[in-house]
C-alpha cells in the first residue's frame, strides 16, 4: 500500500466518508473507490458497501479484493420519551452510535439516559449539526408536530437508510398531509416507516423498541420488512 493511499484512507475515515480499497491480488496494485466514482468496479463496490462486507471481484486481469471502510452506524432518536429509554441502549448494543435529540430539558437528562449522548437542541438544528448519512437511522418518537415535523423534513433531505416515525395510522396520515403541504410528495415521504416498527403486536415501550430495532436491522441489511 502506498503511503498517499493510506493517508487518503485515514482522511476519509476521519471525515466519516465511505471508501473501498480495491487491491489487485496478483500485483498488489491498489486504488480507492468512493460511492459515485466512475470506476469499472463501482457496481461491485456498491454491493460491498451495502452489505458492509468485503468481496472479491473477478476481472479479466484477475481477482480484485474490495475491502469496505464504512463510517460507524448511527441512530438519531428525536424525543427523549419512555420508548427512547429502551431503544437507545438496545441500539447501542446492536452497534449504533446513538444520539438523543430533545429540546425539552426536563426529558433529556443523563439520569434518564445514562451513557447516551444527548443534544438539547431543536431537531432541525440538531440534524444540521449531525449530518446524517447512508449509515444513519433516524427515529422520531415525540408525536408532537412541532418536534417531529422539522426532524422528518431534515431526515427526508438526507441519505439516512432508515426513517421511522411513531404514531397511529391517523396521526401518520395527518403527518403525511403536512409534509405534502410542505412540498414533500409521495416519492419522498414514502421513505418514512409509519406507523413505526415491525408488526409484532408490541405493547410495552421495550417491545415497541424491539419492533423498531427489528425494522431498522431489516432496512440496513436490505430485507423487506
Amino acid at each position: 500500500m502506498k503511503r498517499e493511499l493510506l493517508d487518503q484512507l485515514l482522511a476519509d475515515r476521519a471525515a466519516q466518508r465511505t471508501v473501498v480499497v480495491a487491491t489487485h491480488l496478483a500485483s498488489g496494485d491498489q486504488r480507492l473507490i468512493h460511492p459515485g466514482d466512475d470506476d469499472p468496479l463501482a457496481a461491485e463496490a456498491a454491493l460491498a458497501i451495502q452489505s458492509d462486507k468485503p468481496r472479491t471481484a473477478e476481472t479479466a486481469d484477475g481477482d480484485v479484493f474490495l475491502n469496505v471502510f464504512n463510517p460507524p452506524l448511527r441512530m438519531i432518536i428525536v424525543g427523549a420519551v419512555h420508548i427512547a429509554q429502551a431503544l437507545a441502549p438496545m441500539a447501542a448494543m446492536t452497534g449504533y452510535d446513538v444520539t438523543i435529540v430533545d429540546p425539552r430539558q426536563a426529558w433529556a437528562t443523563p439520569e434518564r439516559f445514562p451513557d447516551i449522548r444527548i443534544l438539547d437542541a431543536w431537531p432541525d438544528e440538531a440534524l444540521a449539526e449531525l449530518q446524517p448519512d447512508h449509515r444513519t437511522a433516524i427515529v422520531t418518537l415525540t408525536h408532537d408536530p412541532k418536534l417531529d415535523d422539522p426532524a422528518l423534513q431534515a431526515a427526508l433531505s438526507s441519505d439516512a437508510f432508515y426513517i421511522g416515525s411513531l404514531g397511529s395510522r391517523g396521526t401518520h396520515a395527518k403527518r403525511i398531509q403536512r409534509l405534502e403541504t410542505a412540498g414533500f410528495d409521495e416519492s419522498r415521504h414514502s421513505r418514512i416507516h409509519g406507523p413505526v416498527g415491525l408488526n409484532i403486536g408490541a405493547k410495552s415501550p421495550a417491545e415497541i423498541a424491539v419492533s423498531i430495532m427489528g425494522q431498522v436491522t431489516a432496512a440496513l441489511r436490505g430485507v423487506a420488512a
Binding site: 500500500m1 487491491t23 491480488l25 462486507k53 468485503p54 468481496r55 472479491t56 479484493f65 475491502n67 469496505v68
Partner: peptide, 17 residues
C-alpha cells in the same frame, strides 16, 4: 507491512477484511 484476510472458508476465526 499490512496483512489483510481476503477470503475465508469454513469456521475461520476472523472475517475477510
Amino acid at each position: 507491512a499490512l496483512a489483510t484476510v481476503v477470503s475465508t472458508w469454513g469456521s475461520a476465526p476472523r472475517p475477510a477484511g
